[in-house]
Design a protein around this nucleic acid. Structure first.
Lengths: 354, 354
DNA sequence: CTGAAAGCGCTTACAG
DNA sequence: CTGAAAGCGCTTACAG
């Protein structure tokens, strides 16, 4: 453990203490070749003894590198409070960044605020690159893809087709496909879908694709009536389910591509005096903490958030280092977590009431 | 909006463009007095035109200030995934810090890792001060209060008695007091408590104090049997409730000082075939997102996390600026959110099943 | 390996 | 207000 330091120790203090030139200290610190083992040992000893830490700011000034990564989250105030992914994402990002000597600067913006360019987001703070973690930002605006500097940017989510934006995302198509196929394998033939948002959002659109592909792959027709789009909120999930239940011939299973909205959908089902999953099977998306605690526990799709955070951070650091990055878009597989709301009796978790 | 910049613009570029000395540019940027309005206008015009941003690293080197705040979260991997407070805390901290020209550097540590001193946490990254957001870190270790540098630190949580650590916290005593008093006002006389952790954690201990004070204030005896400590997890809440239900004379109301544990406690109640709140009233603590979604919705205590984040950030910045800070410990009032698990019929939310 | 110099972009303190 | 200099802590490039 480093000795406790009161006054800043500089490279010169270390050089004096070790009886070498400060140049040699620099060489040792930066792991340069042509340093004799003996010299290295003496310098390292002095560094330890004095508790020397290279002054990152001075190095930044000369290297034109701050070794700082920016992470921006654009979300509504309500989302932020509940967003279970951001903390988890940060954990992975901090770990991956730290391993490469980078720190993580965070900026959270409310979508209610006027749009800001990346350069403005971190204002005068120098960063070497940036991760845009704004899963719910309307893709149609597109403004966030326009890097206003030569700043490397990795986007969490889907890149706009035709662009070469660096992007990492969970496989929404596959996640939805798996969820719906699971319902089909359980014997359901009329399966509705409540999309998590308007289809201009890729995060909604891609999941609808998976839904349609699953139907098609199993020879089931796509019925326009059975697909309805919500808007992220629980209430919108409830409204959508009411709409489906009011159909002349309602579905008996629904894929709700957001756990939060699935909560609202379940409420609508119970309000009609129907049972889950007997009268209505439900599968969600996200695997929020609460998915385990609904009644019955919610079968849902889990996004590989840890892997997304690690991959995107490494990708950004590679970009900062000028490496050639291939592929530029990474899509990571999701996992279906089977509980009871789908009607499968094979769920690992047992039944309980709250 | 700033013009788009390809190459870094320096203070000299601005000076040349405006036809003034670079010294004057510095004066304008730093809002020094004795700058004529005419000069200021010319410089500001040039700054805008060139899209100049002062190089924060160069300023840091000379000012010995990075304008960077560190925020550390120490948590277990499981907690991180679910911790609803951290994102929300960061939102407040980023906003408050940004308003004063500070950026926020984040570091998330897993409690499973070996302990690290603050200086090691941010390694070589320079920060001006630090917020320790480690609500569940065992207070008994105390290591985190020992600043190993002259680094200003604000702790989120309770300061150790007798120390002058800067600290901001929610009023756990008052929160618990209010929760238990509410149960008493509903007619309950045998009220148990499941503490969120071992009493060596102030976050548990203070809530127990509130529980005892509420009993005493209403002339009810404190019965040792009715108090049992869990350990943050849902399972521990379930086990504790089983224990209480096995008592010769079980309570008919329980204050569980953690929503997550309340979830386990509810499960234990249902496993016995009992009803909530008719057979067992329950009040939680934290107001997690899911509290609204339990069956029945959970009455719980809400911590003023937004105010905690804003106050602690401002306090840290004041400390960095060398201001005298009084009081050094701030305790902010909590709020009881009445739903249905306590048996009050006056809850604003209506009854529903999941 | 050491020495002596220049420079990263800025601020400070000192003369004019 | 301007000018010319020094310096924050470090790295780079150049001689020895």
């Amino acid at each position: 453990m480093a000795a406790k330091v009161r006054r800043p120790i500089t490279i010169k203090d270390v050089a004096a203490h070790a009886g070498v030139s400060f140049k040699s200290v620099s060489n040792v610190v930066n792991d340069r070749p042509y340093v004799s083992d003996e010299l290295r040992r003496r310098v390292q000893h002095a560094i330890k003894e004095l508790g020397y830490r290279p002054h990152s700011v001075a190095r930044s000034l000369i290297n034109r590198r701050s070794n700082l990564l920016g992470v921006v989250l654009r979300a509504s105030a309500a989302d932020t409070h509940a967003d279970p992914f951001f903390s988890q994402f940060l954990l992975g990002a901090c770990t991956a960044a730290g391993a490469e000597g980078f720190g993580v600067l965070v900026q959270i913006l409310l979508t209610e605020e006027p749009f800001r360019f990346y350069a403005d987001v971190f204002d005068h703070q120098q960063i070497d690159g940036l991760i845009d973690f704004s899963p719910r930002f309307d893709d149609a605006s597109g403004a966030e893809e326009e890097s206003d500097q030569d700043l490397p940017v990795v986007r969490i989510g889907r890149a706009r087709p035709g662009t070469d934006t660096l992007a990492v995302d969970g496989d929404n198509e596959q996640g939805a496909y798996t969820a719906v196929s699971h319902l089909i394998s359980l014997g359901h033939r009329r399966i509705g879908m409540i999309a998590n948002a308007d289809l201009s959002y890729t995060v909604a659109n891609t999941r609808v694709q998976g839904y349609r592909q699953a139907l098609a792959a199993h020879g089931l027709p796509f019925e326009e009536d059975l697909l309805i789009a919500g808007s992220f909120s629980r209430q919108s999930g409830q409204d959508a389910m009411v709409h489906l239940l009011d159909l002349p011939k309602p579905p008996n299973a629904v894929f709700v591509s957001s756990d939060r909205m699935a909560l609202g959908a379940m409420r609508a089902v119970y309000d009609r005096g129907l049972r889950i999953p007997q009268d209505m099977a439900i599968v969600g998306y996200d695997d929020l903490f609460l998915a385990e605690h609904t009644n019955p526990p919610l079968t849902t799709v889990q996004t590989p958030i840890d892997e997304i955070s690690t991959r995107s951070t490494r990708m950004l650091i590679d970009a900062i280092r000028g490496l050639h990055i291939e592929p530029r878009q990474v899509i990571l597989p999701t996992r279906l977590v089977v509980r009871q709301s789908c009607g499968a009796t094979t769920g690992a978790t047992q039944d309980w009431q709250p």
